[in-house]
Write a protein that binds this DNA or RNA. Structure first.
Lengths: 150, 150
DNA sequence: ATAGATGCAAATAATTTGCAGACCG
DNA sequence: CGGTCTGCAAATTATTTGCATCTAT
């Protein structure tokens, strides 16, 4: 049904689309996979730890490219910067608590099952791996003591 | 159950929270209600059409205040700027097609029903009025001509 | 009268772009 | 070699903030 990962290694994937395999691209991809969910800035910092400098512009350009190729994905876990994560693992959506900031990953299957009826009804094919549901988690609903801004 | 609109008119709502009723705030609120879904910049432009100048800073400050008070709401309909909309109407979530950009409103009830199981399972209370589901609409799935790689 | 609100301009933050030189294939 | 990529610095875009002045209450 839904095509998830394109065939081939990421190296092949790059070449197949007429792009080149550079050390920067390899480092950025690794950083994203290690960090889990990270902003462009965090990826930049991580890359710098392992190797010498890679320019922030290059990080932005690379993240965009890898996202286009489907090698990584991005989601909006805050009202601010987008965060990137590996696409080689299992596709997942996110529940984000506004009170404590905690993020819970929801497997694609569970989310797909929940939205299947709605999706069918509207002839809409959701991008599950990009979906973020904001709200309040169990812990924060109990201890509800108003707003706690970090 | 879920407290949607606080009691009282928006004027009362403002005063009750220790804020003042200014012409700027009134104009911004009107603009948001007229525009449907609008970015801060669009709200600014709309306000200027009707009356003389209101500073963009004031628009930002006012949108934030009205959002905090629950008089308006915001959602992320693109990977970019947030858009604000009236909260006096029915609360709703959005389906956004990445291909054509079309936005479909989904009533709170329908979305709540779809996610109820998942929400209960995780003890999570979703903010339905903020939820945006990206994906591909029916029309665009047909005309599908693949991905456009550079 | 007076705390809160606005306008303005400058400060931040986040992201993008032009270009010359470096480098993959 | 030759077209891609990268680094760098400057340009954009988006949003926030300090402060003097104004105004709703």
């Amino acid at each position: 049904m839904s095509s998830a990962e394109p065939a081939g290694t990421w190296q092949q994937r790059l070449r197949a689309s007429g792009h080149r395999l550079t050390p920067q691209r390899e480092m950025v991809l690794r950083a994203v996979e290690e960090l889990g969910h990270a902003t462009p800035d965090e990826v930049h910092a991580e890359v710098r730890r392992h190797s010498d400098s890679v320019n922030l512009s290059t990080v932005y350009r690379t993240l965009e490219l890898l996202d286009d190729l489907g090698l990584i994905r991005h989601a909006h876990l805050t009202d601010r910067a987008p965060t990137y994560h590996s696409a080689t693992g299992h596709e997942h959506a996110h529940l984000v608590c506004r009170a404590c900031g905690r993020t819970t990953s929801i497997g694609r299957d569970e989310m797909e099952q929940a939205l299947s009826g709605l999706a069918a009804r509207h002839g809409f094919a959701p991008d599950y791996g990009h979906l973020t549901v904001f709200g309040t988690c169990a812990d924060c609903r109990q201890g509800e003591r108003g707003t706690l801004e970090p």
